[in-house]
């Protein structure tokens, strides 16, 4: 028999290294001779979209299009340390460092533009689409390329962002181990085949607090990907380690979800800007995955009334649990 059930899971998650560990990102912003802006960061792109989102932050500060940002990362001989692409920290931590570096560079650019244009002050100077001009007199303008050419050495600024966390008290467990926190919730409907123990995810919704969505399309991609990993964690993926060696080191015996295992997901992006974040944006890489497994296990409970306490919930384990429950029920009747 096929039985359906629904379940939800919700989480909060502290991003960054946390627990008082120094969490530092550095960034360098430079005005190039052609008027474009080079950003140097040691932030690794692994498909999550760091290059895109971080370029957008730089472009936003400097009033430019993303095409005017030359984003240089992953070359450790010329980039500063921006920490690891881990702990869902690059958007918040390196994003903040880039924003600070670009703000400093912007001030330098305005100072040079002030002299170039023969103005008294940088007050009211606008930097937009590659030009600097007084808000009140847009015809009087100078391009970033002209500014760069007028200088003997290029304008360059470095900034450091250090996140605020404290160690937890060992005795009481109290403290402020992470900042910022992010929140998410997931709902799924599953169909359990009580004869085979197979669980199919019929539909799903996942809502993620993102602070501010720098790039909604990338966030949707992270939600889909995180859901797939969460579903694999809940239902398929079982790393067998014996004496420090992985026994099932191939896709034949370590199963990950395929396109047929994934439902379409209703994705909800919740924007609640974080005051210490670059334009309010928080990291969401890991958070999108975390509520998925509890939601699925709750849905299995709703469908067949058995509370699974070990993952992955393979067909064999679930079938055994269903049979045990039936036996207990029948014994109770006799």
């Amino acid at each position: 028999m096929k039985k359906r059930g629904i379940g939800i899971g919700s989480i909060f998650y502290g991003t960054g290294y946390g627990n008082g560990f120094p969490d530092v990102s550095k960034a360098v912003a430079q005005l190039k001779s052609d008027g474009k802006i080079a950003i140097y960061v040691g932030a690794t792109e692994v498909g999550q979209g760091a290059k895109t989102a971080l370029s957008q932050i730089a472009a936003e500060v400097l009033g430019l299009s993303v095409d005017d940002i030359v984003f240089i990362n992953e070359d450790t001989s010329i980039t500063p340390d921006s920490g690891t692409a881990a702990a869902s920290r690059q958007t918040y931590n390196t994003g903040n460092a880039i924003k600070l570096a670009c703000e400093k560079l912007k001030r330098d650019i305005l100072e040079v533009a002030k002299d170039y244009l023969g103005l008294n002050s940088i007050v009211g100077l606008t930097l937009k689409n590659g030009y600097v001009y007084p808000k009140t007199l847009p015809e009087k303008r100078v391009s970033l390329g002209e500014i760069s050419e007028s200088l003997e050495s290029s304008l360059k600024e470095e900034a450091v962002f250090t996140a605020q966390t404290t160690e937890m008290d060992e005795e009481t467990g109290q403290g402020a181990p992470y900042w910022p926190y992010t929140f998410s919730a997931c709902g799924v409907e599953v169909e359990v085949d009580t004869e085979t123990g197979r669980v199919e995810i019929i539909r799903a919704v996942l809502a993620q607090d993102v602070g501010r969505a720098i790039n909604p399309e990338l966030i949707e991609g992270q939600i889909d990907g995180g859901f797939a990993m969460g579903a694999g964690y809940a239902l398929y993926e079982d790393l067998k380690i014996e004496k420090g060696k992985i026994k099932n080191n191939s896709f034949t015996n370590y199963l990950i979800p395929t396109s047929l295992d994934m439902p379409d997901i209703e994705k909800v992006i919740i924007e609640d800007p974080e005051s210490t974040a670059p334009y309010g944006a928080k990291g969401i890489g890991e958070p999108v995955m975390i509520p998925v497994a509890p939601a699925i296990l709750n849905a299995i409970y709703d469908a067949v009334g058995v509370r699974m306490t070990e993952i992955p919930v393979t067909p064999e384990k679930l079938l055994k649990a269903i049979k045990e429950k039936e036996m207990t029920y029948n014994e109770g009747k006799n």
Binding site: I223, D224, G225, I256, S259, L260, D264, I265
Partner: peptide, 23 residues
Amino acid sequence: TREEIRAAISGNLCRCTGYNKIV
């Protein structure tokens, strides 16, 4: 259909995207 697309790419594993944007 979306189901036919899912079947057609079911032999191609992807660890990042969760497949939905590919579909």
